[in-house]
Amino acid sequence: MFRFALSRLALIVPTFIGVSIVAFAFIRLLPGDPIMLLAGERGMSAERYAELQAEMGFDRPIVAQYFDYLLGLFQGDLGTSIVTKRPVLEEFFTLFPATIELAFCAIVLATTIGIPLGVLAAVKRGSWIDQTVMGTALVGYSMPIFWWGLLLIILFSGTLGWTPVSGRISLMYFFPPVTGFMLIDSLLSGQEGAFTSALSHLILPTVVLATIPLAVIARQTRSAMLEVLGEDYVRTARSKGLSPRRVIGLHALRNAMIPVITTVGLQVGVLLAGAILTETIFSWPGIGKWMVDSVFRRDYAVVQGGLLLIAIIIMFVNLIVDMLYGLINPRIRH
């Protein structure tokens, strides 16, 4: 297990360098100049422009810029935002909890609904239940997030007025962040109604973000279950006189979970990508919205730093998933 983890870690370094190059190149390939954007409508003099360029190191050859950047990275320095002048890492950690909160709720929703639905569809294979579940999953899977988000806002926030349109909590409430997670902080604040407000702000974004992973997980669970239900050991379990609930919920599901866990792990990447859109739709102050805003401002340091951090998170999550995989599948553990 330890060697396994080490070998995975060894893979992370080259991936890391690759991502750093891509992130560095990507934002520079976009047309537009961060300094000119900073100046806005007024424009600026040529001297001032050259001065700022030198200050930010943009006058140096591009390869030199990259190696400066890489050197900084190895010292743990991801650079400073051109716009806010704050260190990228610091901004990231202020905004990251909002994204984690959203992504976590979404993945919890997607698994707690997707797995039982997949199991149900597999057990009732071919029935109207199966067809309904799989049909809905197909729709969910191909749902354009942006459109879906707007649709829900129009219905639930507009027509029905049940949920707020944007943000993490009503402006009525204010308290200093303790954990950065609004659900927890609102409880800690002790202010009446704060938690409910935070929760109601969370519902729609969570649903929107969970839609695709939920569909994927339901489909994967169904096919894994179908395969497992035909296995000899399921017949053995039934021949022991165990109840159908135990046969399906324990003997079959435990085996079906092995591929499903991998799928759930892969969904974390999908979630972070989805978070970019979802946060933009709901003005959710997380790293997704931060990235989008920074791309528009051509905030080089933030975009490349942010992409790198997101890549690290995805690699890290995949590592955890691999470990979990070994934990649930004894054939790998030993």
Binding site: E231, D232, Y233, T236, H251, R254, N255
Partner: peptide, 13 residues
């Protein structure tokens, strides 16, 4: 008891 003992036992338990 069955023909394929290897696949008749649940690998997870």
């Amino acid at each position: 008891i069955f023909q394929e003992p290897m696949s008749s036992l649940n690998p997870c338990f």
